[in-house]
């Protein structure tokens, strides 16, 4: 079962800007899913379409098997969204905001759950203050509480930790992990890629309204991530034509301290580390030091988006 099945979703704004172009994604139920992309990639447009703030130009979305556009009420009850922009009614206090939100979603306000949310998000002491009196970080946490107050099965977090300090961010993620372990599906957009890598089990990278890749995080880091073998000879090595031909499979590069070879996967799926190492030793002798540096999510993100922009331009 998928929490979201997005098929061929497109959006062209009135000014002609194509924000989404034939986007198809599946978000497995119970997953912690990262939706990544540079600014203007189309992430917020996609989220706003799911939240019924932006109308799609084409395509379809199913939420837990139900058509989002024809069964809006059913789907909305199961959806909680933390929007990117912080906005609260200045007339109300956090506890009123949560009670009203709960009611708007058709739920009888659950005071014990509201208290737990306020406590876990460190807002309990501030529950009676006007929302204008809260700091930026507090308001953002209140947005999270507001999105969770009706116990949605799918939570969309649109950059929820922007402006939140490291300590609180860590605690917020701890809380979201708990929600995830209880079966809540979480779709997260963030510019903190290390957080996405640590938290999420699935990832999609989009740019210019198109999906560049969408797969389980482990698969992305294992299959798509490139690795480099760094061989330190304590001196610069100038590659000759013969060296380049002999090591062509590893795309050799000179470095200040030696040489760098690109690793890949052999036909059987195993790393080419041994073959590359032995080939280097055969050409230059044993190095004084060596190491493997694999691409992390940020490297992959930059590589994919940069490559896509080069192709587009």
């Amino acid at each position: 079962m998928y929490a979201l099945e997005i098929n061929g979703l497109g959006k062209v704004y009135k000014n002609g800007n194509r924000a989404l172009d034939d986007v198809s994604l599946t978000v497995p139920q119970g997953s912690f899913y990262a939706l990544l992309g540079p600014n203007g990639a189309g992430k917020s447009t996609l989220i706003n379409m799911i939240a019924d703030i932006v109308r799609p130009t084409s395509g379809s979305v199913r939420m837990f098997g139900h058509d989002l556009f024809s069964e809006r009420a059913w789907c909305k009850k199961r959806l909680g969204v933390v929007p990117q922009e912080i906005a609260f009614d200045p007339f109300f206090t956090p506890i009123e905001v949560l009670r009203f939100t709960s009611g708007l979603f058709g739920c009888k306000p659950d005071d014990s759950w509201i208290e737990e949310l306020l406590t876990r998000l460190e807002l309990f002491e501030h529950r009676g203050k006007g929302t204008r009196q809260l700091s930026g970080g507090m308001r953002r946490r209140l947005l999270v509480a507001q999105a969770l107050v009706h116990r949605p099965e799918l939570v969309i977090l649109d950059e929820p930790t922007a402006g939140v300090d490291v300590e609180l961010r860590r605690r917020l993620w701890g809380f979201m992990r708990e929600q995830s372990s209880k079966g809540t599906t979480i779709l997260l957009t963030t510019h903190y890629l290390d957080e996405a890598e640590e938290l999420c089990d699935h990832v999609a990278i989009i740019d210019r309204g198109r999906v560049l890749t969408a797969r389980p995080m482990r698969e992305l880091l294992q299959d798509i991530a490139a690795s480099d073998l760094w061989l330190n000879y304590g001196r610069a090595i100038v590659l000759t034509d013969a060296d380049r031909i002999a090591l062509a499979a590893f795309e050799p590069r000179e470095s200040a301290e030696g040489v760098c070879l690109k690793l890949g996967r052999a036909a059987g799926g195993e790393s080419t580390f041994h073959v590359a190492y032995q080939a280097a030793v055969a050409r230059f002798g044993p190095p004084v030091d060596a190491g493997v540096k694999s691409e992390d999510l940020e490297d992959i993100f930059l590589r994919l988006t940069t490559k896509d922009r080069e192709i587009q331009s």
Partner: peptide, 18 residues
Amino acid sequence: IMGKVMGMQIYLLMAPLS
């Protein structure tokens, strides 16, 4: 207009209300 200018309108649009 307060909802629109201050950005609170989205909460009403997101709520399951006809």
